[in-house]
Nucleic acid binder design. Sequence first.
DNA 1: AAGAAGATTCGCT
DNA 2: GCGAATCTTCTTA
Length: 201
Amino acid sequence: MKPRAISRAELPVDTMAMARFLIGKLLVRDTPEGRRTGRIVETEAYPPGDASGHHFRGETAANRSMFLEPGRAYVYFIYGVHFMLNVSSEPPRTGGGVLLRALEPVDGIELMQARRGPVRDRDLARGPGRLAQAMAIGPELNGTDMCQEGPIWLAEAPKPVDEIGVSIRIGITKEAHQLRRYFERGNPSVSGSTALNRSDG
DNA sequence: AAGAAGATTCGCT
DNA sequence: GCGAATCTTCTTA
């Protein structure tokens, strides 16, 4: 299977639309050791004006990537332990992003296992911190254009998406009631509780 | 200059 | 279920 990159022209210029659009698409990571590919099965939207978003208080050196055009990687470090990968999703200087929370492993599974240890395949990239670890994502990828083949990029969906569910987002306290988490219902690589993954907001 | 909070995960109880 | 691990960034004094 040969993945084809998604051009910027194909991307929605809107955070909620982007979060939904990305479900089922491929995330491809190319490194000297080889290629890792995962199918995106869970996302969260952090649109402009959302107090839980890192862009909420305006552009800084740290959150600059989210103020670029759609399709840029925003990578940040949290809890002293984990990296997280987002895709910018609004017009330039606006500020918005979509957090990639889980992948269904497709290719390069041995490379993911090497970084994640002995866990079931479905758990390799189940959760945003695990996703970053499995895909070898670090701060050097912050700002990368994901709309062309490079170290980290987006590619077309390999198959039709199953039913998409919607729920509240995980692990935040501000704007906690907003239904801004999207996932492929029934996919075993989706994180979160059974109750959350049943709802369809 | 110091402190607290944070888009999590893992291991133990 | 709870707490630790461990660090960056922003806020407040």
